[in-house]
Lab assay of single mutants.
Amino acid sequence: TEHYTFHTEEQAQRAAKKFKKQGLPVTIHEKNGKFTLQVN
């Protein structure tokens, strides 16, 4: 499991699309105004 932190939801969504294209499951969590992208 890898985690990436982004300052905006837009950045997180863009990164999520790249991972999803590779067939990886992705979840985004919002915490304290930051967005954490979790790749399993």
Rank of each mutant, 00 (worst) to 15 (best):
P25A: 15
T36E: 14
F6L: 02
A16L: 07
F6Y: 11
E2V: 13
E30W: 08
A15N: 02
T5G: 05
T36N: 06
H7R: 08
N32V: 00
R14I: 10
T27E: 09
K34R: 10
L24W: 09
E10W: 09
K21S: 13
Q38A: 09
A15I: 06
V39W: 08
P25H: 15
Q11H: 06
E30P: 05
F35I: 05
A12Y: 01
R14S: 08
K17V: 11
T1S: 10
H3V: 12
K17W: 07
N32R: 03
A15Q: 05
F6H: 02
K21N: 11
Y4F: 09
K34Y: 13
E10P: 04
Q13G: 04
A15F: 08
H3P: 07
T1V: 12
A16N: 01
V39K: 00
Y4M: 08
N40I: 14
I28K: 00
A12G: 00
G23T: 01
H3S: 12
E2T: 12
K34V: 12
K21G: 08
A12Q: 00
Q38E: 14
T5H: 14
L37W: 02
K18A: 09
F6G: 01
E9G: 04
T36A: 06
E2D: 11
H7E: 14
Q13N: 08
F19S: 01
F19P: 01
Q11L: 09
K20H: 09
Q38I: 15
F19W: 07
Q11W: 05
H29Q: 10
H7D: 15
L24E: 02
T5S: 08
E9N: 07
V26C: 09
F6E: 00
P25S: 15
I28A: 01
T1D: 10
K20R: 14
H7S: 12
Q13Y: 08
E2G: 11
H7K: 09
L37G: 02
Q22E: 09
K21H: 08
T36G: 06
E30I: 08
Y4A: 05
H3T: 12
L24Q: 05
T27H: 07
K18W: 15
Q38T: 15
E10N: 06
K21L: 11
E2Y: 12
A15L: 06
R14A: 13
F19L: 10
K17Y: 08
Q22A: 13
K18S: 07
T36S: 06
N40A: 11
T8I: 04
N40Q: 10
A16H: 02
N32S: 04
T8K: 04
H7V: 09
F35L: 03
K21V: 09
G33Q: 02
A12I: 02
T36F: 14
G33E: 02
H7P: 12
H3W: 15
E10A: 11
K34P: 00
K17F: 06
L37H: 02
R14E: 14
H29V: 14
K20W: 11
H29L: 13
A12N: 00
E30T: 06
P25N: 15
K31Y: 12
E2C: 15
R14H: 08
E10D: 07
K31W: 12
A15K: 04
T8D: 06
E10L: 09
K34Q: 11
F35V: 04
Y4D: 04
F6I: 01
E2F: 13
